[in-house]
């Protein structure tokens, strides 16, 4: 079984995306053997009122009965925007959302802003995971209208050290850390925190240059298949898993990466 924990539908306002609807993504999944995709609506990154995006996603999934079994929707919540607590409750109790993706950089708050901490705790209390990511697109090709976190400047792209503070603040939440795109040297204390937290990285990020080494460093229970589709290509995240030699990862380990770890976190 193959579960993609990092996919999207919706638009990127600065570049045309392909395969960015449930219909197109499902074709992609069928072509390449992906059973289930965790998706959120990219529009939620750009709408001030993210709930409109969550409602759009709910409607799109409802629009065709074949979508229901194949997609797991995640909400996008901005905890410094009016009404977010209502929105979170609606998403979980009425819109079947199974987790929340949070975008501190795009929604412009500190990752340990009290509002963000409260959001993570509320999602934790529902028993659901929260997702943060390193970046959405490479800042070197960003549009002039995109956020100014730029490689090589004082305000750089994020690495794991930028995400760890929220994990420290709420260590008993479940985390998906997506698109592992920049390296960081962690202290032993930080590595321990990552290891001891219920946390998975997806395999879409470019910093995973050698999958076997990352499995050794963080553990085989810390990774799950992810594409970052439709922004990144549909296969590289899978290639990181399938090109492992059997002396690097046996079939059981590969199954953990393909779906086992994702199932555990998603409670499937």
């Amino acid at each position: 079984m193959l579960i993609d924990i990092n996919a999207y539908v919706g638009h990127w306002p600065f570049q045309q995306l392909k395969y960015n609807t449930c219909e197109a993504l499902l074709q992609r999944m069928n072509k390449f053997g992906v059973d289930v995709s965790v998706i959120s609506n990219l529009n939620g990154i750009f709408y001030k009122n993210t709930q409109s995006a969550n409602e759009e996603l709910y409607e799109e999934i409802r629009s065709n009965s074949k979508f229901k079994d194949r997609f797991i929707p995640f909400a996008v919540i901005n905890p410094i925007y009016a009404g977010w607590r209502d929105d979170l409750e609606t998403c979980v109790t009425k819109l079947d959302m199974k987790g929340v993706r949070i975008y501190p950089k795009y929604h412009d708050f500190d990752i340990i802003d009290p509002a963000c901490i409260e959001l993570v705790k509320r999602v934790r209390d529902y028993g659901l995971p929260v997702a943060f990511n390193y970046r959405m697109v490479d800042s070197r090709q960003r549009s002039w209208m995109d956020i100014g976190y730029v490689v090589g400047t004082a305000k750089k792209e994020w690495n794991l050290k930028d995400i760890i503070p929220i994990i420290k603040a709420v260590p008993d939440a479940k985390y998906m850390i997506l698109n592992f795109a920049n390296a960081a040297v962690l202290s032993p204390e930080e590595i321990n925190l990552v290891k001891n937290t219920d946390l998975i990285f997806d395999t879409s990020g470019r910093t995973i240059t050698n999958m076997a080494e990352f499995l050794n460093l963080y553990g085989t229970n810390k990774f799950a298949f992810g594409t970052h589709s439709p922004i990144l290509d549909y296969l590289t995240g899978l290639l990181r898993i399938e090109s492992l030699y059997s002396n690097e990862a046996d079939e059981n380990t590969k199954e953990l990466l393909r779906s086992g770890n994702a199932k555990r976190m998603l409670g499937l």
Binding site: Q16, D138, Q141, S229, P230, I231, D233, Y234
Partner: peptide, 8 residues
């Protein structure tokens, strides 16, 4: 390092 969908 970038592998955007549709690049190719």
């Amino acid at each position: 390092s970038n592998n955007e969908e549709n690049l190719i």
